[in-house]
Design a protein around this nucleic acid. Structure first.
Length: 490
RNA sequence: CGGGGUGUAGCGUAGCCCGGUAUCGCGCGUGGUUUGGCACCAAGAGGUCGUAGGUUCGAAUCCUGCCACCCCGACCA
């Protein structure tokens, strides 16, 4: 194994793949398209889960769990839904194996064919709405605010660790409401939750917006999304929140009696974020030395590396460091004091940089004599020698500063790579370098398709805060009343 | 699913064209010396050369089928 990572400039996607493996986040498995999330990667995911779960609970949601398998007939009840997912479903057809009479190990028992095939869920709207039918009778049963943490399977042709895998982990919220207005408010609220999480925990600025009809979730009336910009200028959809209208209520016959004693269909929403956020996190901040993790999501926030000759020096260092470790833990800082003897300090420095540990402290004999300690921050890679006295406060402040700094860096990067373009020529030239292009569009799906064909750029969203502005479509010249955001996307 | 490519130790590879059971590096185990940016030395262990068949006295090497993976398209949270 060569010691350094491929650089982002040389080959961005190779850099990403290598980084995921070297930092021990995930690896490919024996099953095509499915990844193994390794302990270090999973512990980051757990931190994401915890923060998100708290936010869901705060907004009134509770967790539940629905089955992995969906009867085939369920999936076809909502026409556009099945159309959207049919091409990528794993199907269970049998329930038993038997020994091969020809001695070839085990084979599928042809006598154990299921009467109705089961689909491994690509998303759970259908099973969930079939339950909601039984749970909802009156407006008093509403709103129903449920989330589930689960795995789903979408049989993708080409997969990439975290960004697109055949099986992935996610949460999916599914809510039912008495009024359209309330359902829309829920959809928007959850988009805000996602944006809040992305910006304040992941330190990743996101653009909030609405998808065009082409990019809309199969079965939704409106899809809201948050879009982030990766360091190669490509867009990544980081989360979606769907207003489902009454589509699933009608498909599964979910009616309720309202206050006026009239029967009506309920209004639905669904929203989700997945392990793809791991990919976003990696690509948003990391550099050629390895991961750069925001302190709020870093499994290890501070690592302390002793530099010593002989047992005695190590003991002296331990005596000084142990109280600091204790004090930091007390303040909620996760800290690792790595005094393993079988690795050199230099090795540890490189290793913890690769793993994105935000703050590294090094202490050796020199520091012991001078009453100092060296503090290195991962985001800027600056090293400073500091007085040991009072280092605890400095560490806490530095963690906060790193969180802010990497957000700002990502924000500035996005700003520097977002352009208003007003001509087709400008559009086609600029798109080659990536970034977000804010341009006029005539509103038709055909034009959107055409632009995608010609440039590989898609409309990422119509920003929520878009301002009305008369203009001409970048491709057709037809009148347009506002700009939309184009980009090449993951 | 179309077009191109690759499968040799845990990982990365040489050897293949011109058949004679395998090279080097990393990693791993042991002993010693080290430790302020991925340490060094010594002697080690580890391989049905993707898989099934064929040609041959003899196959990692030549031929055929199959499988897997990678890259480029179509599809996508």
């Amino acid at each position: 194994m060569s010691k350094s990572l491929p650089s982002r400039a040389d080959n961005y996607s190779e850099w990403y793949n290598e980084l995921v493996k070297r930092a021990d986040l995930a690896e490919n498995s024996a099953v095509r398209g499915c990844m193994i999330i390794k302990p270090y990667g999973y512990s980051i995911w757990e931190k994401m889960q915890r923060a998100l779960d708290d936010m869901f609970k705060e907004t009134g949601h509770t967790n539940a769990y629905f089955p992995l398998f969906i009867p085939k007939s369920f999936l076809s009840k909502e026409a556009s839904h099945v159309e959207g997912f049919a091409k990528e479903c794993a199907v269970v057809t049998h329930y038993r194996l038997k020994n091969d009479p020809n001695g070839g190990g085990v084979i599928v028992d042809p006598d154990a064919k299921l009467e109705e095939e089961l689909i491994v869920r690509p998303t759970s709207e259908t099973v969930i709405w079939s339950s909601y039918k039984n749970w909802i009778q009156s407006y008093r049963d509403l709103p129903l605010l449920i989330n589930q943490w689960a795995n789903v399977v979408r049989w993708e042709m080409r997969t990439r660790l975290f960004l697109r895998t055949a099986e992935f982990l996610w949460q999916e919220g599914h809510t039912a409401h008495a009024t359209k207005q309330e359902a829309i408010e829920e959809t928007e609220q959850m988009l805000e939750v996602y944006a809040d999480f992305a910006e304040n925990f992941m330190a990743m600025p996101v653009l909030k917006g609405i998808k065009t009809a082409n990019e809309r979730f199969a079965g939704a009336d409106e899809t809201y999304c948050i879009e982030a910009m990766m360091q190669d200028g490509k867009a990544l959809q980081a989360g979606t929140s769907h207003f489902l209208g009454q589509n699933f209520a009608k498909a599964f016959d979910v009616k309720f009696v309202n206050k006026e004693n009239q029967l009506d269909y309920v209004w639905g929403t669904s929203w989700g974020v997945s392990t793809r956020l791991m990919g976003a996190l990696i690509m948003a901040h990391s550099d050629d030395q390895g991961l750069v993790l925001p302190p709020k999501l870093a499994p290890i926030q501070v690592v302390i590396v002793p530099i010593y000759k002989g047992e005695e020096q190590l003991e002296n260092i331990k005596a000084r460091i142990n109280p600091l470790v204790k004090a930091l833990k007390k303040r909620g800082v996760s800290v690792k004091f790595d005094f393993a003897e079988n690795q050199s300090p230099g090795f540890k420095f490189a290793e913890y940089e690769l793993k994105g540990v935000p703050v590294r402290l090094a202490i050796g004999n020199r520091d012991m004599e001078n009453g100092t300690i060296e503090l290195a921050r991962r985001d800027t890679r600056e090293k400073t020698s500091m007085p040991f006295e009072g280092i605890e406060d400095v560490i806490v402040d530095t963690l906060e500063d790193i969180q802010k700094n990497i957000y700002q860096k990502a924000f500035d990067f996005r700003a520097a790579n977002t352009f208003e373009v007003n001509s087709w020529e400008e559009f086609t030239t600029k798109i080659e370098n990536g970034g977000f292009l804010s341009a006029h569009w005539d509103g038709s799906s055909e034009t959107e398709e055409k632009i995608k064909e010609l440039t590989k750029a898609t409309i990422r969203c119509i920003p929520l805060d878009v301002k009305e502005e008369a203009g001409k479509c970048i491709l057709t010249g037809a009148p347009s009343s506002r700009r939309v955001i184009f980009a090449r996307a993951y």
